Simulated scan of single mutants.
Amino acid sequence: MNEFSWKDVTNALSLANMILGLFSIFCSFCKKSQCASWMLLISFLLDMAVGAMTRHLTVCHRSGTKLNDFAVFTTFGLGSALLLGVDGPLNGSLVIIYVLAASFRLCFYSTGVPSTYKGLPCPYASCVLASTSLLTKGNTFILSCMALLMILFMMDQSYYPHDEILESENWKKMVYLGGVIMLLLSPFRLTAFYYLIWSLSYIFFPDALWGKAVCLRLQLQRN
């Protein structure tokens, strides 16, 4: 396939990501938090695939970048925030704060360091909320506490490595493949627990577990 065709593939995946985010929003308004959470977990996998194709095939282009940014905001900003519900002023305020935090993270947190993010990437925060929602059956109090924690991580100035899960060590690819298999075959609560552990490992041990390949590449480039 030529470069134009690969651009179409990446755009299609970004569009699918956005559509899943819109379905998640619709499910949240219909009080179907479990369905909304599954949409977000599928989008989590799609987002990684889009990132891998963009980096590996060098097909990044302006329209595709904008589409992916809109997809990330729709799915991992609005879609994730609405898992908290808007039944009262406190929940509604927290939803607004979460959306604003995701917006600031996407728009203003840039870094000049290669292969790093500043602030927790929105998909990982979304994965934590979706997994927590499934494990707690949408417990509003626990979700609100987790959302506040994710807001702090997203607004933090700490650096997180590009996980590059599909382009790195084989064990990382197996983690991704395990996530796909779990979504298709595994009992729901076990799948949610798998994704929660996956996302928390990136949040609390970014360099120890997910940054080794990045560090090695940077050292080789300097040498």
Rank of each mutant, 00 (worst) to 15 (best):
S186F: 09
L84V: 01
L94V: 04
G21A: 14
A81Q: 05
L209Q: 03
S28M: 10
L83I: 02
V59F: 03
N223A: 15
L177K: 01
D8W: 12
S115Q: 15
K66L: 12
S93A: 11
S115H: 13
S186G: 05
L129H: 03
T10I: 08
A81F: 04
D8C: 14
C60V: 05
G88T: 01
P89H: 01
K212A: 14
C215P: 00
G112R: 09
M154E: 10
G178T: 05
V72H: 14
S110Q: 14
L41W: 01
F44I: 05
K32N: 15
G178K: 06
I203Q: 00
T65H: 09
Y194R: 05
Y98W: 10
C127D: 05
M48Q: 11
G211V: 12
A12K: 01
G112W: 02
L67K: 01
C27V: 12
C27M: 15
W38C: 08
H56L: 03
Q157D: 14
V72K: 05
W6G: 00
L209G: 10
K32I: 13
F73D: 07
L20S: 02
F153L: 15
Y124N: 02
L184W: 02
G179R: 03
L218S: 14
L78W: 07
S24L: 11
E164R: 14
